[in-house]
Design a protein around this nucleic acid. Structure first.
Lengths: 166, 166
DNA sequence: TATTGTTATACTCTATAACTATA
DNA sequence: TATAGTTATAGAGTATAACAATA
């Protein structure tokens, strides 16, 4: 990995004037993490009005587009551990955004559904998410946007690619 | 944001057969996080032989390329909070990978430097990091690799782009 | 016997307040 | 007065073990 000097330093002087981060910036992992955090910080700011963290939004979105989904399925799809989903689902139920119904074919499981209140909120929240994404990617033209989306999928859609964690 | 149906479901049946994640996959934030996690998991696996977490590697890399850097400068460059860096630096010093020298111009600060042992280890670690990155991005050809790197930088190198967090 | 959902709990990561010594 | 480094501590996020109910 090359790392062309990006900053001017006084060479032999041990006291650093300007920090040279060019090596780290030559690593894909570093850039991917920075970009991911930049979008997430935008998300945190814009979605706070709904009281939704990224993981809450992900769960509610999957319920929205998969009515009747079980906790187990949510865990697999989002890379969550079952014990950590319990409190989250309880919280969303306490806020009357979702409700649990008996699963039609499995007495152990509960199907998760959006309430009317939850549906209304998610219509707004998904629209806000779309606006937020346009803002976070405003430095990209439409072609670059499609390219980036495609390249990111190539990175994680591989045999070694495990589940997400959020 | 469009989200073309990617999975076949039995429509009105509330019990979900296959989870439809196409909406989430239409969001740049979701894809960026998944890609970032895929590379980090590769990093965790390959760098465990050195006993280095991503944040340890980042700190050691900045010291490598900025001998004499201070804790404060590390915090700013990596988005760490000072109290959380103390234990990390103490640990690296305890492992005899780095050493603290008095700062030449500021009696409050200490300049951080790699020990001979630290230099040897980082030569190996940075080579491993390069191999690991090639593996993590093996689905991309050289042109795509450059494109992705460039597009990621465009995302986080904006006025609103805050510091990293690790 | 295996799986869904749950409780309890521990470990890591991140954040805030307050202190010291130097500038 | 402001800054570098530190301590103590609180809060999230993430992890494992073990259990009851159902398959």
């Amino acid at each position: 990995m090359p790392h062309p000097a990006k900053t001017v330093s006084k060479a032999a002087d041990p006291s650093v004037q300007t920090v040279d981060t060019s090596y780290l910036e030559s690593l894909m992992g570093y850039n991917a993490r920075r970009a991911s955090l930049a979008i997430i910080s935008e998300f945190l700011a814009q979605m706070s009005v709904y009281g939704l963290r990224p993981v809450d939004f992900s769960v509610l979105s999957l319920i929205t587009h998969n009515p009747g989904i079980t906790s187990r399925q949510l865990c697999v799809a989002l890379g969550l551990l079952p014990p950590n989903l319990v409190g989250l689902v309880n919280s969303l139920q306490g806020r009357e955004l979702i409700l649990r119904r008996p699963h039609p074919h499995d007495g152990r499981a509960m199907g998760l559904h959006l309430s009317a209140k939850g549906k209304k909120m998610m219509r707004d929240a998904e629209q806000t998410a779309a606006e937020l994404e346009r803002n976070a990617t405003s430095a990209l033209n439409p072609t670059e946007n499609r390219q980036l989306m495609s390249l990111l999928k190539k990175i994680y859609q591989k045999p070694s690619g495990k589940g997400a964690t959020a």
